[in-house]
Design a binder for these strands. Structure first.
Length: 795
DNA sequence: CGTTTTTATATTTTT
DNA sequence: TATAAAAACG
């Protein structure tokens, strides 16, 4: 099992039981190490499968972990504590719902539901949503929860903040009354449960001897504390991560957790996995050189045994349109040379960039798949159906109730609902409970709706889950509604798909592979039979609690699947796993996605597009120094996705928000040593006069291309693919003239208030012209040249 | 109540 | 530009 690993990987896998930090570089086999360690711990009898807890961020990586684990050891993964932070916390809260102060049928609000809930709250409390935009309130609440903070923990420096805290309090009360829990609440509740309830805490602390964490650099403050608390009984934490790939600070991830963990827990036990099995030398060295510009790294340098490979190909085009066409021409050539479409990825910093590329691909008739966008359980028709289902279990879920009370329309209007909301607030009850108190004209329809829900709930008691969904879709009127809609066909299909999903789900849930407590299907060779997870695992030490005891220990429902109704389980599943992003047809399609979405993936050929100042790094990130470093890590992630061939492209002008913007090439390109780059177009700004096409590095010879899909011939030494315009547009080289002043990129300027700065971008023309200016003291600003009084100075 | 018009807003995103 | 949400209208 471990003999195919390199020495560092082996060392990590076979580490004695103690806290350890594994710094795993891109493509260094991190998932492999993680899963092999789990298998090794089990096989060498150091742990029972029940003694392991493995946590990830996405369902996808949790699934992959299980898949790989079962390929190493033939065990039944059912009941294993391997999953996402949210999934595991949900499991824990379901098992101990009473101790956690929740109702048994509590439901999960996704981000959209949460926002709706906040909007409703603000409206009801008469809070000005101009001054307290729902989105900001949501960010505030989730930010606080991710820091582990309740309203009473937050300092109120000013009135605005005091008010936010007040809203947080009200929101929490509303959730409580509705019987719902939002995403960060799952974690915080679970944390507080463990913290406050000693028997439960000690139980889990005894149970989990080994805690394994994937993508550790993405953990937030609360997740970190949850892990530390859970390990308090002497368990060891095996944390795998890469600080250079930390790209989620904007949603609360704190890379600092890695350094803290190293200092406070892992001490000397830090293992670096630096051998990269993915990319050729030029690609890897480019990434290394780039990321070296970041300060405060834990330090790491990737290397490879594969050859240097080909240099990174760089192309600068006059416009985003031509950039897209150029990329498509290269893709055509790659495909012509035998490349697989699905092994080609086009990456971009922001989603808005995809349309031009999509258009070009479409025109060229190349099949492609765009990642990101609406997922199955987020579609409105599916959410409608789910809302009805949620009401079966919990009539007080106002968010769900409001979503469907008048959908399809049944004559319940805004003013009726307002009256009802007033009543509900007055008595501090849910909307559903307020219905009987309503008198007047709207009341009749409300009663009919209430009766409909009751009759569905009755049905829920006697039929299977798929049958219930079928029933709900029919009797709610959803089916009829979409049948009469002209664009409703696809939505009907999705509703049918929901029934199918439930059928599959119910089948999987009901598959009782083996009796609880007996997890291993076949004996594993060379392992004593008694550790194979028989009813009372023999290897558990006296302090541990055999899994069997769980059921008798007073903790309700230790085995989730057996205590949750199929409906509740399905609803949890729908909330926690929003499903795949729509899978466009075409088995072999070019992959389009943001750099963020590409993390963890790899491709033979990668195009990084829009590598321009202001876009990548994004201008919004330049406000703070930490922002630039995160952008650089993002670029690092992008580069290290490529196995054999990497392209970096940029456009001098780009349509953005309806107007053309001009930009310089990204600083990141200048941070990569030129020896790794091969400019396929002239490098504007340097070689403007002596523009040389193609190889100014004179390096056809360096393209050793030691094997792979693009061996045959080298179509790329052709200087152009036909669409390259040799001159930059006038406005770029000549700049913009406003009044008697002339501005160009790179020009130094002085502003009375902001001080000295340099123009880093220009857009528009004449009196509408705007300039992005990087000021020395106050950072970047966008100024209207017709308005701002700027002095032109030497740069 | 459902439709049309206006207006705001535009990194990155999983759970 | 283009999209979604809010406001105004019939």
């Amino acid at each position: 099992m471990i003999d195919r690993l390199n020495p560092e990987q082996q060392a990590a896998v076979t580490l004695p039981p103690q806290h350890a930090l594994v710094l795993a570089g891109a493509g260094s086999g991190k998932t492999r190490v993680l899963t092999t360690r789990m298998a090794w711990l089990i096989q060498t009898s150091q742990a029972s499968p029940f003694g392991l807890l493995a946590v990830t961020f996405t369902n996808k990586s949790a699934r992959e972990m299980l898949t790989r684990l079962t390929s190493l050891l033939p065990i039944n993964t059912r009941g294993l504590w391997v999953g996402t932070f949210h999934g595991l916390c949900n499991r824990m809260l379901r098992a101990h719902y009473r101790d956690a102060g929740l109702i048994q049928t509590f439901q999960i609000l996704d981000s959209a539901d949460q926002l709706a809930s906040i909007k409703r709250l603000l409206k009801g409390a008469g809070i000005d949503d101009e001054k307290y935009p729902p989105r900001d309130v949501q960010r505030f609440i989730n930010g606080a929860k991710e820091q582990g903070e309740r309203p009473s923990d937050i300092e109120a420096w000013d009135d605005h903040r005091r008010r936010l805290i007040e809203i947080y309090k009200l929101y929490q009360a509303q959730c409580e009354r509705d019987g719902v829990v939002d995403f960060p609440e799952l974690l915080l509740r679970s944390y507080e449960l463990l913290q406050r309830n000693a028997p439960i805490r000690e139980h889990y602390q005894r149970r989990f001897r080994h805690i394994l964490v994937d993508e550790f650099q993405d953990t937030n403050a609360l997740q970190y504390r949850w892990l530390i608390l859970l390990s308090g009984g002497g368990a060891s934490i095996f944390a795998v991560g890469d600080d250079d790939q930390s790209i989620y600070a904007f949603r609360g991830a704190d890379v600092g957790n890695m350094a803290d963990f190293q200092r406070d827990y892992a001490r000397g036990t830090v293992i670096r996995l630096e051998q990269n099995y993915r990319s050729y030398g030029h690609i890897l060295d480019s990434a290394n050189a780039l990321i070296a510009h970041n300060t405060s790294r834990l330090g790491k340098n990737l290397w490879t045994e594969q050859g240097a490979g080909e240099p990174v190909r760089v192309a600068e085009q006059p416009s985003d349109l031509l950039e897209a066409r150029w990329v498509i021409d290269e893709i055509k050539a790659l495909i012509h040379d035998g490349g697989l479409r699905s092994q080609i990825a086009v990456l971009y910093r922001s989603n808005a960039q995809s349309r031009v590329i999509e258009h070009a691909l479409f025109s060229a008739g190349i099949s492609y798949k765009v990642y990101g966008g609406l997922r199955f359980f987020e579609r409105q028709e599916v959410k409608h159906a789910l809302a009805y289902l949620r009401l079966m279990d919990n009539r007080n879920d106002d968010t769900s109730w409001l979503r469907v009370v008048n959908f399809p329309t049944r004559g319940i209007g805004a003013r009726t609902l307002e009256q009802l909301a007033d009543l509900a607030r007055e008595h501090n009850i849910s909307l559903c409970q307020a219905v009987p108190l309503m008198s007047g004209k709207g009341g009749g329809n409300l009663l009919k709706f209430a009766a409909l829900i009751e009759s569905m709930a009755h049905e829920a008691q006697v039929v299977s889950l798929p049958e219930l969904i079928e029933h709900v879709i029919h009797h709610s009127g959803l089916r009829n509604y979409y049948q009469n809609e002209k664009e409703g066909a696809e939505r009907l299909e999705n509703l049918q798909e929901l029934v199918n999903a439930a059928t599959v789900f119910a089948a999987e849930e009901n598959f009782e592979g083996l009796p609880a407590g007996r997890m291993i299907e076949q004996p594993v060779p060379a392992t004593p039979p008694e550790v194979l997870g028989t009813d009372e695992p023999a290897e558990l030490d006296a302090a541990d609690v055999p899994i069997r005891a769980l059921d008798d220990s007073g903790f309700a429902g230790a085995v989730l699947e057996q205590t949750m109704s199929p409906l509740a389980a399905f609803l949890s599943y729908a909330s926690l796993e929003a499903g795949d992003n729509q899978a466009q047809a075409g088995q072999d399609a070019v992959q389009l996605m943001t750099v963020h979405a590409a993390k963890g993936l790899e491709f033979d050929a990668v195009f990084i597009t829009g590598v321009e100042e202001g876009l990548f790094p994004h201008e919004n990130s330049l406000l703070e120094p930490a922002g630039l470093e995160e952008e650089r890590r993002l670029m690092y992630v992008a580069i290290t996705r490529a196995r054999e061939r990497l392209y970096i492209t940029l456009a001098q002008s780009r349509m953005l928000h309806g107007q053309t913007r001009y930009a310089m090439r990204s600083r990141f390109l200048d941070e990569i040593p030129q020896e790794h780059l091969k400019w396929l177009t002239p490098k504007a700004g340097l070689a403007r006069d002596a523009a040389t096409w193609g190889d100014d590095t004179g390096s056809g010879a360096r393209s050793s291309a030691g094997g792979g899909a693009y061996r045959r011939g080298d179509a790329y030494n052709r200087p152009s693919s036909g669409t390259i315009a040799p001159r930059a547009p006038r406005s770029l080289t000549s700049g913009v003239t406003v009044g008697d002043q002339h501005f160009r990129i790179g020009q130094g300027v002085h502003h009375q208030k902001f001080g000295d700065g340099t123009i880093i971008g220009l857009s528009g023309s004449g009196q509408d012209a705007q300039a992005q200016i990087q000021f020395r003291d106050v950072g970047p600003k966008t100024l209207a040249l017709g308005v701002a009084k700027l002095e032109v100075i030497a740069a």
